[in-house]
Design a protein around this nucleic acid. Structure first.
Lengths: 343, 343
DNA sequence: ATTAGCACTCTCTCTCGATGAGTGCTAATA
DNA sequence: TATTAGCACTCATCGAGAGAGAGTGCTAAT
């Protein structure tokens, strides 16, 4: 069931128009506004066919057509032009980053803000992932003798911490010693490397019982991923309220409630991603509360390693071309900034 | 212009009823439901007086009365009974804390969630404030030679960090030396104490230029308060959507947009507070976007020092008695938890 | 294959009247 | 003098009904 080029053209026009105006598109609009050289009646016939094929639907008999989820999918896969940002938009983004160039947290947070300023949807940006980051300093601090705080500083300037519990008290001097040891061995390693390394040294050099237990605890933390306090920053939550699709309070509530649960979003962003940018439309999303939304996610890397993600959540009637352009540009931007931080 | 006890009674009934039902209260309701032993007509006369005095108003001629802001204020100051939580509510709260007893961030975040589960408003909880916290470990780490990350670990297990910029490169060994010095002098001090102390030692023992400059930089950070990355956790943002007063999308948008700006909320919570709990109603709030909301804030302390705040934001038609009870109970709860952490 | 023309459908908006909740006032009552 | 019953009046709300308008589907002509 392939589309003729004219059908493709019409589908594209309908989708673009609907994305802009949020209102069913009529045959007349198409025939008049975009000069295809055919009459409204012809357009109507084509539209009827497109509906039969499942790309369009009608809210009611005497209304124009709106794209179906299948229609959007086809558009995104086959028809969508590759858009690039205007100079003005680029400038806006670049200026935005000039204010937040020091701390990673600020950069990530600012990214979310910037995104939701240039596109009217909600954005989410995940904090650089620690597993592949290199550690440049670690320290163990006793909180109350039995609970020890492990603090790890990465070369990006981010900090990971974890409380380790011990059945026996540990003196502070002992912890200091182990901290020194920790830094001696682990400096410059990523968690992954530390994990591998730990196994090899556990029995050899660190013979003392307490130290060994601490190390084992750290390893356990690595295994359980409990270090990865993957913080996610949101931007433009209020944008949802401007979207006509979500005029219904219940819908908005469902979405905002979803956005409140950080771990749900973490799952969302955590999906497998073969391309740099992927789009999921409507019920393609697994999470129920956002099944009438579309989600665009992009990855950002450092030294070839995936370290974070950017997500944009909006209605299925989303400006896909623009969102893709923004997300693409911004992820490259973050990559550059992070590279700069590391020189 | 004092109220008779009967007028007070009627005002109280009206406010309580309106808080529950969110609908103008009629004279008949009052005369029938709450047996005051007087007729609706008498109630009407009293209501008319109360309106004249500014405690009540009418949405339109043939509707019941609703409390004015002045009415709420009178209620809160003079009439409101002191409520305590039900056993069930206490249990809910206590259970909630059992899951999050290790890291402060989790405790604070969980607090916000708990609050907005037992009251249908938005809650905000500020992270323990660092200025009065004691530091148990500090470390300087070179990021790129010119930028140095100062990391401070408090006895509560929270971490403060700040990037210091230097016009000259500093070797890592030097930073390690200074770190040792830092801990030697500052261990167990609060930022306030460090500031005072710094001034006294700056010329004496730390004579070396680089160390002196670093110290000056730290001091500058203290002065500018730039350490105080006062994180605020939100709970129950979606609750706003259930409030009939905010049926208007524009109103909701205004409020949610406000909640998105962390620094605005920081200002909100930062207000002077002589009592443990204070209430501001409607236009008593300085921030424009929440002038049709009420805000209840409570402080929590540790060793007599104010270290954080809890806020609840809702409509002026707020269950003040319950909110006050919750906020009061929870702040005491946090205080106990923090005390426990420090033994 | 395309298109003009027309009947038909359905939503949206506006108006109108009925309904009912609630008040304010007046006059009677304790 | 305070209270109350009674009644007229007000105003929001709801539903029905009419009219307008946008858009389609179908048919017949090109």
């Amino acid at each position: 069931m392939k589309l003729t080029s004219r059908q493709g053209k019409i589908l594209e026009i309908i989708i673009k128009d609907f994305i802009n105006k949020a209102e069913p598109v009529s045959s007349r609009t198409i025939a008049k506004s975009y000069n295809l050289g055919i009459s409204a009646a012809t357009v109507r016939n084509e539209m009827s066919d497109l509906e039969e094929m499942g790309y369009l639907e009608q809210p009611h008999t005497s209304a124009g057509r709106t794209p179906t989820q299948k229609g959007y999918r086809f558009y995104v896969d086959q028809l969508m032009p590759i858009k690039s940002l205007t100079q003005k938009e680029r400038n806006y983004i670049n200026t935005g980053y000039q204010q937040a160039l020091d701390e990673i947290d600020n950069i990530v947070q600012q990214t979310a803000k910037i995104i939701s300023h240039i596109i009217p949807y909600t954005s989410m940006v995940s904090h650089p992932h620690m597993k592949t980051n290199k550690y440049i300093h670690g320290h163990l601090v006793s909180l109350d003798g039995f609970r020890v705080l492990l603090v790890l500083i990465t070369e990006l300037g981010t900090i990971e911490k974890k409380i380790l519990e011990f059945p026996f008290g540990i003196k502070e001097e002992k912890l200091d010693e182990i901290s020194v040891l920790l830094n001696k061995y682990f400096k410059g390693m990523s968690l992954e490397e530390i994990e591998r390394y730990l196994i090899s040294i556990l029995d050899q050099e660190i013979v003392e019982q307490q130290a060994a237990i601490i190390m084992q605890n750290i390893m356990k933390g690595i295994e359980e991923n409990s270090f990865c306090t993957e913080k996610i920053y949101l931007g433009g939550t209020s944008n949802i309220l401007d979207i006509p699709e979500f005029k219904d309070r219940e819908k908005v509530k469902k979405i905002i409630r979803f956005l409140e649960e950080e771990h749900l979003m973490a799952c969302l962003l955590d999906r497998e991603q073969t391309n740099k940018v992927i789009i999921s439309i409507g019920s393609e999303n697994e999470s129920l509360p956002i099944q009438d939304c579309s989600l665009v996610t992009a990855t950002y890397h450092l030294n070839g390693q995936l370290i974070g993600k950017i997500g944009v959540l909006g209605p299925t009637r989303m400006e896909y071309d623009k969102v893709v352009a923004v997300v693409d540009y911004i992820s490259t931007n973050i990559e550059n900034i992070l590279k700069n931080i590391l020189n």
